[in-house]
Amino acid sequence: MRRTTIAIAGCELEVHEDGAGAPLLFLHAGDGFRAGDPYVAALSANRRLICPSHPGFGKSTLPDWIDNVADIAIIYLELMDKLSLTKVDLVGCSIGGWISAEMMTMAPERFGKAALVGPIGVKTGPADKLDIPDIFTLPAADVAKLGFHDPAKFAFDPSKLSDEELSIQLRNRETLALLAWEPYMHNEKLPRRLHRVASPTLFMRGASDGLLSAAYIERYAALVKGAAIATIPEAGHLPHIEAPGAFAKATLDFLAA
């Protein structure tokens, strides 16, 4: 993949790009973007795949003025301008799905189809119960159990990571906390704006996702006109990581339909 850095509003944005064809903007989850992950090649086979690292993730800088997801959505609209992308299809995972949803409410005309994969960003349940378990105060082992279909395959082992890889992971988590601490993993206003989304939208959920319930995704999808829901078997909160083949097929079938 080609890696470039693009300056926007004081942020040095890391952008990975590969392939040729109709543009597809991929917005990563809280664990960051890694060019070598298996789903990447599948998505770029017939598309121009554009994968920015969110501010404060990967090697993108984090200007001190950024502290919420809408800040990032606006930066990405400007990124589309800089890359002369009038209209793109979108794939957004977890917090990337939240950023995608914000962008589609801001500039609905600039998006073709959108696949939101385990998207966070709305609060749909009662005030006295978190929609999403508190990943920042649960023991790490419990978060892994909730997040993965097969947590053993994804056990965190710092000894297998370089200092640089480990630093990026820790910083990704720090930025996720900055953005999603309060309100926890959502924007209270987003449900009042989602009616503006004009794109055919597919909500995807890993069948074993313990962080986002099926009911959460159903309530989220109900806020977007005509949205469909697909379930990816044998995957947790990150189907693109845990079931890359099924994820890529479902995504590409939807985009091609």
Partner: peptide, 16 residues
């Protein structure tokens, strides 16, 4: 541990 070291409290280098 999750209360003793919330993300962002300790600098990244310290956590490494």
């Amino acid at each position: 541990p999750q209360y003793a070291n919330p993300p962002g409290y300790t600098p990244v280098a310290g956590n490494v």
